[in-house]
Deep mutational scan, measured.
Amino acid sequence: MISLIAALAVDRVIGMENAMPWNLPADLAWFKRNTLNKPVIMGRHTWESIGRPLPGRKNIILSSQPGTDDRVTWVKSVDEAIAACGDVPEIMVIGGGRVYEQFLPKAQKLYLTHIDAEVEGDTHFPDYEPDDWESVFSEFHDADAQNSHSYCFEILERR
């Protein structure tokens, strides 16, 4: 099963200049909980913004210009990325925008964090048809001392 995991502000903004323009430790914990011990696929820009392999996960970098870091697996196509994951129950696609666009048609599940923030962004989550998805989990949280904005975790499964 292919799943996408993303944090989205208003207007589906997911990033600005290779960074997330908010401070939500709870979302980072949600991300870790849902990706640990699963292969993660990301684009080169996302890889560069993280700066290191995510521990406890097979890191697969999709790029037309593969790098030389041998701590991760470099691939040039969506099919190659899927094959590099091996026989696993769930593959997690973690961004960025172009990689989400490439995998959305193949995805069966979306793990979304909806952030109540209007922020400037240069990267967006692809538009998706809500009628194609069923919400199977939703959990709202107010902003607090650690988390700069209110947010809602949601899991959607393709109908």
Rank of each mutant, 00 (worst) to 15 (best):
M20G: 01
A29T: 06
E48W: 15
G121P: 00
G86E: 08
G67S: 15
E80L: 09
D116Q: 15
L54G: 00
P55I: 12
E90W: 02
C85V: 09
H149G: 03
S64V: 14
S150D: 07
E120N: 12
Q108E: 09
L62K: 00
H124V: 11
Q65P: 04
I91P: 02
N18V: 03
N37M: 14
A143C: 07
K109A: 07
F137L: 11
R71F: 09
M92T: 11
F31G: 01
K38F: 07
E90Q: 04
E101N: 07
M42E: 01
A7M: 00
K58S: 11
P89L: 10
H141M: 06
I91W: 05
V88M: 10
F125V: 00
M16E: 02
V13K: 01
A143G: 07
A117N: 05
D122W: 01
A9K: 00
F137H: 10
R158Y: 05
Q65A: 11
G86Q: 11
R158K: 08
N147L: 02
S64F: 14
D122T: 03
A26Y: 06
S138L: 09
R12K: 15
P39Y: 10
L156C: 05
H114R: 14
R158E: 03
Y100H: 01
E118P: 14
E17C: 03
T73R: 15
R158G: 04
V99A: 11
T46C: 06
H141C: 04
P66Y: 09
D116W: 13
Q108T: 10
N18T: 12
H124N: 08
P130F: 12
D122A: 00
N147V: 03
D132R: 11
A29C: 03
I41P: 01
A143F: 07
E120F: 10
W74V: 12
V13D: 01
N23A: 15
L8P: 00
Q146P: 05
I41M: 04
A26I: 09
Q146F: 11
Y128P: 05
M92Y: 11
E139I: 07
K58G: 07
R12N: 15
F125A: 01
F137D: 05
V75C: 13
Y151C: 14
R52F: 11
R12G: 02
I60S: 01
Y151T: 10
A145G: 08
R71K: 11
I115S: 04
E17M: 02
L36Q: 15
F137V: 10
R57M: 02
I94C: 04
V136E: 08
